[in-house]
């Protein structure tokens, strides 16, 4: 075997052992008939799905998480997308400084962000509401949109924009008819990542969510401490499905971008 094949095999092996195997072992327990999270399963049933869908706090937490994630995604796309367009239009030095600035939330530890947000929102009387979570999560999501949009904007042939200009099109018209249609997949991929990031974010939410704005990951987290039931696995399974679905969409979009470029 060539070295590159060995590296490939080892990394796939590790990925499988650490990422797939635990899921494969734990997820079937969602269908366990008993109250306990252990093998052998006493029987197959959907009773825990019934619990999740009908008993608090699960559905309530899911709805909260969804609202927050959608809000955070929208805000991230606007701020991150505008940032990317602005950086593309600025000079080399300014672009470098601005890029670093817009990406910085990714390198600040979430705990630090959580604490900082907690104090700021308390001061402005926003604590505990959905809005505080949306704002905080959009800080985390905007860099993802920024990076993804930057990648597609940079991949765009600059001559296309010049061609538009030579034919008399204004900057705005060019953006609407050339740049946006060709880079939309990049913005969408960023939006998906922003959504997922918000949907399963724990650390910042731990500081900011209140009983009224309880999010799914926080509900899971407390469920883990209070009563270890298969409901947790059911929720985990649902979260994994949502993520998998999003990844599928992202893969599709990436393919679409490649074909256009």
């Amino acid at each position: 075997m060539s070295p590159s094949r060995i590296v490939f095999a080892v990394s796939v092996g590790f990925g499988f052992a650490f990422l797939i195997l635990p899921l494969a072992i734990v997820l079937p327990l969602a269908f366990n008939d008993s109250t306990f999270l252990n093998y052998p399963m006493s029987g197959v049933s959907l009773r825990w799905f019934d619990v999740v869908l009908n008993q608090p706090p699960w559905l309530f937490a899911m709805a909260n998480s969804f609202k927050v994630a959608v809000g955070a995604m929208a805000l991230s796309v606007v701020t991150g997308g505008l940032a990317a367009m602005g950086v593309m239009a600025s000079g080399r030095v300014a672009a470098l400084v601005l890029s670093a600035l817009f990406v910085s939330p990714l390198v600040v530890p979430s705990v630090v962000l959580g604490v900082a947000m907690f104090f700021i929102f308390a001061r402005f009387g926003l604590s505990g509401g959905h809005l505080s979570l949306i704002l905080a999560h959009s800080v985390l999501g905007a860099p993802l949109v920024f990076l993804s949009a930057m990648t597609s904007l940079k991949g765009l042939n600059p001559e296309l924009d010049r061609a538009g200009a030579s034919m008399g099109a204004s900057r705005l018209f060019r953006f609407r008819t050339i740049i946006l249609p060709l880079t939309a997949p990049g913005f969408l991929i960023g939006a998906m990542f922003a959504f997922i990031t918000s949907f399963d974010e724990v650390v910042v939410a731990l500081f900011l969510s209140s009983p009224q704005s309880l999010t799914l990951p926080i509900a899971l987290f407390s469920g883990l401490r209070d009563q270890l039931e298969p409901t947790l696995v059911v929720v985990a399974l649902m979260l994994s499905m949502i993520s998998a679905l999003f990844l599928l969409v992202v893969a599709r979009l990436q393919k679409a971008t490649e074909q256009k470029a």
Binding site: E159, L160, R162, A163, A165, S166, M167, G168, A169
Partner: peptide, 15 residues
């Protein structure tokens, strides 16, 4: 965009 000059690019730059 205000010159009214047509331009054919080396790489054509078709949309």
């Amino acid at each position: 965009e205000r010159r009214n000059f047509g331009l054919v690019f080396q790489g054509y730059a078709l949309f």
